[in-house]
Design a protein around this nucleic acid. Structure first.
Lengths: 347, 347
DNA sequence: ATGAATGCTGTAAACGTTTACTGCCGGGTG
DNA sequence: CACCCGGCAGTAAACGTTTACAGCATTCAT
């Protein structure tokens, strides 16, 4: 009564052994009569199998974890939105680990794989895959998909697929676009250099300027965090130091939001005086005013790919690690809507 | 090697029984010498306890689920952001069920409680708590917290706490504000009437108008979905039918976004010509232009409260069901920033 | 009528823990 | 010296499944 029926309860009521009960419930060939008796008893008792016991015996939990820095970040929300239905479809439950950018937490999740509470993991390490990450992945002996950059050489035993985006190409798209609409003094508001995206975007900015024949000027670069208020601070500093900038390349949409705040506050027209480009192309980009031109790094697509790779591994067994690269694209909106000249902004 | 060490492996290596191993690992009083031997063996083997086996034996999984309609909705994101750290702090993992507003899915989660894969559940049923929900909750015999309205009378066995907000009061806050800044023809863009929030807000709108001595005019009301494009459609329809509206009360921020799109497109000044108020006070509200005055229904607070109630139950055992009511508040921003008159908008 | 083959069913072990219970050993007490 | 008690450790059962294996009827062929 208080403790819920088990197959033993059913077996007693139906007058058969627990083995028969199990077989019936799992649809294994059984005599018609036995099937009826067991089904009847199970129905009457309102039996529901205990998933923990089943997991212990089957050595699988039908659970998959997704670990990222911050569930409040629209990029990760976009990924979760793709991952969750894909997993549900395949009969897996989803566990969420929001690590708050805490590296120890992140490693904790990875090491926790050895507790076998999930069958696989999708992880997006904020500060890249360190030696320790690799060790934990090897020790895990459960499939892992990393969203983001992976070290050049992974050891043999690392069962790890990889989904990445070419943020270098993304930055180039943005700078090409700004160049095309006539901008020559292009500031750069970046996130922390010790994060993977931060470092990659810094290098890409420099490289893209070179390709366009523009000089790299340290005074045009400001480093902060990937948040709105930090973006505002950075924009303020940059505009004070270099009032002549005619475009701001922002390392993500939140930074761009902060920049827009400051530009509005200072009465500078966007994009007339200063054009602004964000990155990630989150939902926010179509909400701002003017709407924000942004480089899409395919968050949704990356989420979908990661789920696909993991499920493939779980369903079809071991295989060579795979890498999926998602191509960035540029969505032009109001904040750069000045084809060739310097007119008022549009939505 | 391939299968990971268990306490049996440790016991052999340390030359003790598995009981002693377990005792040492759980910090139960044990002879100094035994402790050392076991610890040493565990270290050398890189032992990690199997959480599934532990769950089976302990009859607890240290997992909690949160079920809501759509993880893409900022309201739920805000809740998750509060729930996740609270659970982590208490040693619980978080499972996410995004039901896509599918009622069967929602019931599935509730019924799934009987599989005992989680120790408790926080659920925010989109269309209210039906008879079937109640049945499932009673059958669950695991603590449940419902965010949203609960039926008047719950049966004895229902282990359910409740967190709700007073959206009636929220709507009143908004209408009082609009009235105070001189608006008299206040349109209402609502969500589906068969959702709990939709129905509540419809009633509240009517009631609040009455309290202000304003007539209820069906032509001023438009019903759609809780999404941006639906909000835009509704706004277009309403403005076409009633060009004289001087304010739009929107049943959530996304609808308000759509309304702002349409007003801008039609060249109507916000808040000069039409003031706009949203609901939920999501992150979006401070991003739009003009920024959006919005009624906060305390999403974060509700999430925190729900986690608190559930953890309390899990840690301190059964007690009388509790109800927490979160008071709404109004955050005034640009979209209504016209104290008493009809001047240009500000941020 | 006997043997093998066929088709179900039941017994028991296993998954990896925790813990009640029993038993052993040593020391203190009468 | 006998007894008891305390402190530890080991045996075994239990959590709720799944499944290998053995066994039993029944059927069929010879």
């Amino acid at each position: 009564m208080t403790d819920g029926p088990t197959i033993t309860t059913i077996a007693q009521r139906a007058g058969v052994s627990i083995a028969s009960v199990s077989r019936v419930l799992n649809g294994l060939p059984t005599r018609e009569d036995t099937v009826r008796r067991v089904m009847r008893a199970a129905d009457e008792l309102g039996y529901v199998p205990n998933s923990v016991a089943r997991s212990l015996r089957n050595r699988r939990t039908d659970q998959i974890a997704f670990a990222m820095a911050d569930i409040g970040n629209p990029v990760y929300v976009a990924m979760v939105r793709e991952i969750q239905p894909a997993l549900k479809e395949a009969g897996y439950r989803l566990l969420i680990h929001s690590t708050d950018g805490d590296a120890d937490d992140e490693l904790g999740v990875l090491r926790g794989l050895r507790e076998r509470y999930v069958d696989g993991l999708i992880i997006s390490p904020l500060r890249g895959v360190t030696e320790e990450h690799v060790e934990a992945i090897v020790a895990a002996r459960a499939p892992v998909v990393v969203i983001g950059a992976l070290p050049e050489h992974m050891p043999e035993g690392a069962l790890v697929d990889n989904v990445r985006t070419d943020s270098r190409a993304g930055v180039r798209l943005a700078l090409d676009h700004l160049y095309a609409i006539g901008r020559r003094r292009i500031g750069f508001l970046n996130g922390p250099l010790d994060t993977v995206p931060g470092a990659a975007r810094a290098a890409a900015y420099r490289e893209a300027l070179g390709a366009l024949g523009l000089p790299y000027d340290e005074d045009l670069v400001e480093v902060g965090d990937f948040y709105r208020d930090s973006g505002a601070r950075a924009a303020r500093a940059l505009l004070a130091r270099e009032p002549e900038v005619d475009a701001l390349m922002c390392a993500n949409d939140l930074i761009a939001l902060g920049a827009l705040d400051v530009l509005r506050e200072q009465g500078r027209d966007v994009p007339g005086d200063v054009a602004v480009v964000g990155m990630d192309d989150t939902d926010l980009a179509s909400v701002t005013w003017p709407t924000l031109t942004s480089v899409s790094l395919g968050s949704a697509e990356r989420g979908r790919a990661a789920a696909g790779l993991l499920l493939d591994r779980l369903q079809n067994g071991p295989r060579e690690p795979r890498v999926v690269v998602v191509r960035p694209s540029l969505t032009v909106r109001g904040s750069t809507a000045v084809p060739g000249g310097r007119a008022g902004g549009a939505g």
